[in-house]
Amino acid sequence: MKKTIYIITTLLVVLFLSNCQKESADIGGGNIGGTTGKGGSMAKFTIANDHLFLINEKQLKVYDLTTPSNPTKVNELDVDFGIETVFSLGNKLFIGSVNGVYIYDITDPENILYLSHYEHITSCDPVVANDTLAFVTLNSQSACHWQTGDNRLDILDIKNIVNPVLLKSIQLENPKGLGVDGQYLFVCNSEQGVKVFDISNIYQMEQVSGISGIDAYDVILNNNILILVGKDGLFQYNYEDIHQIELLSNILF
């Protein structure tokens, strides 16, 4: 009798543990059919909620990836001419365009809800965001504009998502892509390298670190490793100590 109880208990424990492991494998992406990678801020594709969101010249198109080898279009909507970048955070989708940032709710990818629009002067606009703030760089020399715009970083309060409010603008030389990780914002500034800002108190935001001597186009932040691409090559840095960003490797182009 005791032996039987032992065997049953062991079996139950094993079953319980194996189920736990199965769940933790999904924690990374929470998606059926495998986890999703990470793109930079200049992307025109993003995968969220098991769907691929892409932008062409003027539309957002949405594909169901439940069967990854069979992407199936489930939605399409006109956004604006001159849309350049797309970024998702939870159930929100941000689209950067010549006429500003468009924000959508993608909780149901087949019924996307338009939430709001932040307008500003025309430029190419990569956008990244955390739960309360959105960060946009504007570049006057970009290929999608004809030097009518400014060169700067705009920070928007998005606590009330239907009414984004400009909090701050910082002039930069030649801003391109950007990335945010916790209290740090990384902004690519072309020949000027990367500027790192502490955003824990946005009203007293200041540059706390940076990388110079390389051309910076876009970044991906991946577990304390900064992956940077620019005209010179692909560079990886350890930014665990933000004041001593350490070059790990490079592949020169």
Binding site: G29, N31, G33, G34, T35, T36, G37, G39, A43, K44, F45, T46, I47, L52, L54, L65, P68, S69, P71, I225, L234, Q236, L248, S249, I251
Partner: peptide
Amino acid sequence: PRHPQKIAFIQIYGNHDIAVKGNTLYAD
């Protein structure tokens, strides 16, 4: 990450973007 290696080039003409889910790469 201290020793990244280029291992292949995938020819995709007219390409600008990619995204990956599981073992599937999406590209234009």
